[in-house]
Simulated scan of single mutants.
Amino acid sequence: MIPDTFALGGDLPVRRLGYGTAQLTGPGYWGPRGERADAVAVLRRAVERGVTLIDTADNYGPDLAEELVAEALHPYRDGLVIATKGGVVRTGDSAWHIDGRPERLRAMCEASLRRLRTDRIDVYQLHRLDPRVPMAEQLGALDELRAEGKIRHVGLDSVTAVQLTEALGLTSSIVSVQNRFNLLDRESADVLDLCAAHELAFLPWFPLANGALTDGAADTLDGVAGRHGASRGQVALAWLLHHSPVLLPTPGTGSLAHLEENLEAAEVRLDASDVSLLDALADAA
């Protein structure tokens, strides 16, 4: 039986299937995608349906996604975990600037605290490691914020196994990694293995590749989906939940109907033959 929950850092239990806020913003994660009221409704419905992990970032919008989380969900109910990210500055819909200077990370974290209307961020993720700043300085800044009570736990985004190993040698505050990983893209399999060995959560971003994944594996997915009365997307998400107990997918959407479909993936129980077929898709990709 696959576990339904995972304890971030050993002390923050969450349901493994969460919700990501990137799709509440426009193309390139810039500006709004639709009506603000619709975004608020999706966030509230996600929590009503039992989601306990909301994943967001300061540069989604920028600022907009965090503001929507606060508008929809503050005051936060007990057991709801908000994870956000900092370390990337946006100046346009295709302009991303990594900035891991300690003073900038502090300023970004404190701005996120204000937008989220909270005194402490449950999981603050370094959105990208800055190659111009020593890793020890970047993680040291986050450890200082943690010591001040502004961060509970630290996460990393888009790291290699070598970088994660180095980071774990520098701080004990890391509880999660967020790398791209899905049915067809398993380039970060070695990072996933390292997370499992250290009991860290792995939040796979692009779990459905914005729909392209389910189109690319249509025949196999249709066969498995037909046996379970599920959709292709539900099978792809269910595979993640079956593949490793440390995988915590947070698919995003701005549609209430699509949200319901995604969350129902947690009820799809794949058997060994299903998993074997789906495991083989990466070899054929």
Rank of each mutant, 00 (worst) to 15 (best):
V191F: 07
A189G: 08
S176F: 10
T160A: 03
L194N: 06
V159G: 10
E187N: 04
I174A: 06
L183V: 04
A189V: 08
D157M: 14
D185G: 05
H153R: 10
R152L: 11
L194C: 07
D190K: 14
N179S: 11
S172I: 01
A189Q: 15
V154T: 11
K150Q: 03
D193N: 12
E166P: 09
N182D: 09
L183N: 05
L184P: 05
A167T: 00
T160P: 07
V191M: 13
A167R: 02
A161L: 13
E166C: 05
F181R: 09
L192A: 08
L164D: 06
S176T: 12
G155L: 01
D157Y: 13
L192V: 07
V162R: 15
S158I: 14
V175Q: 02
L192K: 07
T171I: 00
D157I: 13
G155Q: 03
S172P: 05
Q163S: 02
T160I: 04
L168G: 08
G155F: 02
V154K: 08
K150V: 01
R180Q: 13
A161Q: 14
L164M: 03
R152P: 04
L183R: 05
K150Y: 00
A161M: 11
D193L: 13
V154I: 15
L194Q: 10
A161E: 13
D193P: 07
S173Y: 03
L192W: 11
T160R: 06
S172R: 05
V177I: 15
V154F: 00
S173I: 00
L168N: 08
D190Y: 10
T160G: 10
T165I: 12
L168P: 07
S188M: 11
